[in-house]
Amino acid sequence: MPREVTLVDANLGNLNSVERALVQVGASVTLTDDPNVVATSRMVVFPGQGAFGPATQAVIDGSMGAALRMVIGRGDPFLGICLGMQMLFESSEENGGQEGLKVLPGKTKRFPDGMKLPNGRPFKIPHVGWNDVQPSGDHYYFDHSYYVELGDSSDLMWQTSYGPIEFPAAIRHENIIGCQFHPEKSQTAGLRFLRTFVLGGRS
């Protein structure tokens, strides 16, 4: 029996690639923008790309936000991808300050502007490309300007460094998994990550 996964369409970007990657690793995917369907799901993937702003605020404050909190609170496996992970925390610095879903302690911060690296290159934002995560050393594809600063360091699952900044590449708290990278764009490593989540509900 394929695992049934609900993929949340909160109008935060094109979800075709996430859906296809989940199907590739054996999931049976229900793509929905209906909070009622999400609220009754037993395994949820919440992707997001773009900016933490009016669009995310509408999700957080609306019935979809309530549905996401319900799934998480009930203890069902939950995966937040990129902006979908950042939204789990208390707040974001983006767009003059935004509130998150507040299911985990921590906040989302912007990489520091205007820095030079020791090799003479500017510290470039966004952080785009393939970076390794620790402890495994596997590479995943990132594309983001903001990163999560955890309020509870025991939520750290994998760490990545970019220039002088160390940040969580993936987080884990009970039934919640989150990743800053894009597993659906990370070739074999990304599919492996999704498969582990789908099979075990954990990565």
């Binding site: 970007g13 790309q49 773009g50 900016a51 702003g53 966004p126 594309d143 300007s145």
Partner: peptide, 9 residues
């Protein structure tokens, strides 16, 4: 475009 889809795209 940046406002709707983010600078990263």
């Amino acid at each position: 475009v940046a406002e709707r889809y983010g600078s990263q795209c």
